[in-house]
Computed example of a mutant assay.
Amino acid sequence: MATSKDHAPGLPRPSAWVCRFAPLIPPGGAVLDLACGSGRHLRLLRAMGHPVTGVDRDISPLADLAHLPDVEMIEADLENGSPFPLEGRRFDCVIVTNYLHRPLLPRLPDLLSSGGLLLYETFAQGNERFGRPSNPNFLLAPGELLEAVRQQLQVVAYEQGEVWEPKRAMVQRLAARKMEEAQG
């Protein structure tokens, strides 16, 4: 099982939520990390044997991964109106942590292959009591994440509320699967 201890020194630890549900990703399944930042989840999942794709507007913190097999880095600003860099692609798992750009929410199910897993964790309303982010544009309303995927994905787990680790915050967390597509 993945643990938050499996990380590169000097980088933030992987999310405990991602570690908890990473074993549900099919062995060798392709993983996408949107707004991947320093690559903490890319590194973890690559170490678990998954080919990984990371998207961020600045991929310079990922330079040490660029030459590795089964690693794809895409430098793209997901918010500036540029064409979506992953149109038509499918992944066995899509990870989004500490990032919210509401226009992307409806696209997420389309990025998943049949049976694919969405792992999403970000800040929620009430977080302004604890610091950043405090802008309502970056804070989910109660139940918003759940409602965004309810019609297209099967919810495996959902949490909403205050956490103390890695820092005190208000969050919403979701693990959800794309329904298996009928064959035939």
Rank of each mutant, 00 (worst) to 15 (best):
Y120A: 09
G54D: 07
L145Y: 01
A76T: 02
V52C: 14
P9Y: 05
C93W: 06
E181M: 13
L11A: 12
L100C: 08
G88D: 06
Q183D: 11
L62K: 03
L112N: 01
E75V: 10
P109F: 02
D58V: 15
A22E: 06
P83R: 10
E162R: 15
C19S: 06
Q154F: 11
G37V: 09
S114I: 11
S82I: 07
H50T: 04
L118N: 00
P51K: 00
R168D: 05
N137V: 12
R20N: 08
A182Y: 15
P69L: 08
G143M: 09
Q183W: 14
M170R: 11
L145V: 02
L42E: 02
H50W: 03
H101R: 08
S114C: 06
P142T: 07
L139S: 06
G116M: 05
D110E: 14
E128Q: 11
R107K: 13
I25W: 03
N135A: 13
A47E: 12
L24R: 13
E128T: 04
A16P: 02
E159N: 10
L24P: 01
C19L: 05
L11P: 00
S60K: 13
G28H: 07
S134A: 14
N80V: 13
V149L: 10
E181V: 15
P9Q: 11
P61S: 05
T53I: 08
P83K: 04
N135Q: 05
R46A: 11
V94F: 00
S60R: 13
R168E: 13
D56T: 03
L119I: 12
D70L: 12
V149I: 14
V149K: 02
P83A: 09
A124D: 04
G116H: 00
D64T: 15
S82Y: 08
L45K: 00
L145A: 05
L145E: 04
P109L: 04
H50S: 03
G10W: 06
F130W: 12
P12G: 10
I74A: 09
V171H: 01
G115Y: 01
F21M: 05
E144Y: 08
A175F: 02
A175H: 02
N135D: 15
A2F: 07
Y120P: 03
R57C: 12
L146P: 00
Q183K: 13
L140E: 03
D110A: 15
Q154D: 14
M170H: 08
Q183E: 14
H67G: 15
G54N: 08
V94I: 00
R90N: 02
V96R: 02
L32M: 10
C19V: 09
V155G: 00
D6M: 11
Y99W: 10
V94T: 00
Q152P: 01
L11N: 01
E87M: 10
A2G: 00
G143F: 09
L24Y: 07
A148Q: 00
D110M: 08
A35M: 06
V163N: 07
T53R: 01
R129V: 12
G81N: 09
E87H: 12
P14D: 02
E144I: 10
D110S: 13
V55G: 03
Q152S: 13
